[in-house]
Write a protein that binds this DNA or RNA. Sequence first.
DNA 1: ATGTAC
Length: 470
Amino acid sequence: MAFEELVKRGEYVWEVPQDAALRMRVPGRIFLSEVLMKYLERGAIQQVANVATLPGIQKWSLAMPDVHTGYGFPIGGVAAFDVSEGILSPGGVGFDINCGTRLLVTTLFKEEIEPRINELTTALFEAIPSGLGSKGQLRLSEKELDGVFLDGAKWAVNRGYGNPADLKHCESNGCLDGADPTKVSPLAKKRGKPQLGSLGSGNHFLETQCVDRVFDKKAADLFGLKEQQVCIMLHSGSRGAGHQICTDYLKMFQAASRKYSIELPDKQLACVPADSQEARDYFSAMAAAANYAWTNRQVMSYWVRDVLEQQFNTTATLVYDVAHNIAKLEKHTIDGGRKEVYVHRKGATRAFDKDDSYGIEQPVLIPGSMGTASYVLHGTKKAMSTTFGSTCHGAGRILSRKAARRSLTWRGVTEGLQRKHIVIKTDDLSSVPEEAPEAYKPIDEVIDVVSKLGISEAVARLTPMGVIKG
DNA sequence: ATGTAC
């Protein structure tokens, strides 16, 4: 599968034709502008085609404009599988189960924060543990950890880490049904237990941002966002627990794929029938990891609020919290009928046209790369009919971590941030070149494509003031 | 992404 085979189906819509020789069951669709086409990897096209061969796939194997090559499924990939004829695949969710984004809005405005951004960033850095292997401040018992897996963000709110209103503003209210801690391995529990309330590493971040532009005043007002207002954005996931759960089930599914005679063009696509015991077990463990991630972001929000209270005698309101690595049981209209499907979103964000948190379309949060803008959007009807209610998840990597380290320096990147008056704090200096804006696609272009496609609509643009890098 | 390896 190569570039020459892509067929233009519309502005920003490129089809990967259904190739019988490859046993594709549906065509692929990749959403790109001419600018983003330059970054498209051959491997990502192949992965879109590979996913199209999996049993029970509906309509299309999709890739968002921030697509890049991942483990089995592309990052930026969306695929829906029939609940009875289809499959579940850990590679379609990703290692960092429920990696996601949360936005809090403060009562402060840019000019109030500007003179104190250094001390605020330092205080946040000291309050929220970050980096590889970082541990949280909580000491959980086995039983409490099971509670986190079962109840998600509600577990934290019940213990005073936030308020009940927070839950209303989380995707799925911060808890996925069907979680079962007995389906989580002892090793995954051991890794997860000390880490609750920690940021992690890599592209995870905590940023102090300000609203740079409002595009949709009605939605922005409802979400509580005004120009120049200061926000805190968190990008984090399920830490070692989710990673271990993914590893455990991938290993199990390698053998199970053979048992169920599922032919795979790539071993990394290991999967099992959606109605099998193995699939039920994976879904229960994945939901537990998803709930851990929501609890993790909820607990970190508590420490953010604690810092705001101490430093500015104020607090912050939760705007929304989205998952962008998850499989969910959803009903969609497919070929005129309503159908239950497992939607795999791997580096893709839910963008429903309805949501009960504000009574309008669902808020969508898209983090940019370090030093660049982030966006608040909302979902659309068009997303419901063309992408199973999904949109992009971020800028999307273009340089590998290694390539970024080779071509960029800590000093150069930090100076670039300084020129934009952005303060940065990190324990891991190697993360600075790896997460530099130059290592990612231009976020404004990605947002432009999803907006022009109509699969989400921009509400506000946020620009960073202080960055904590994991 | 990740106690950066089966």
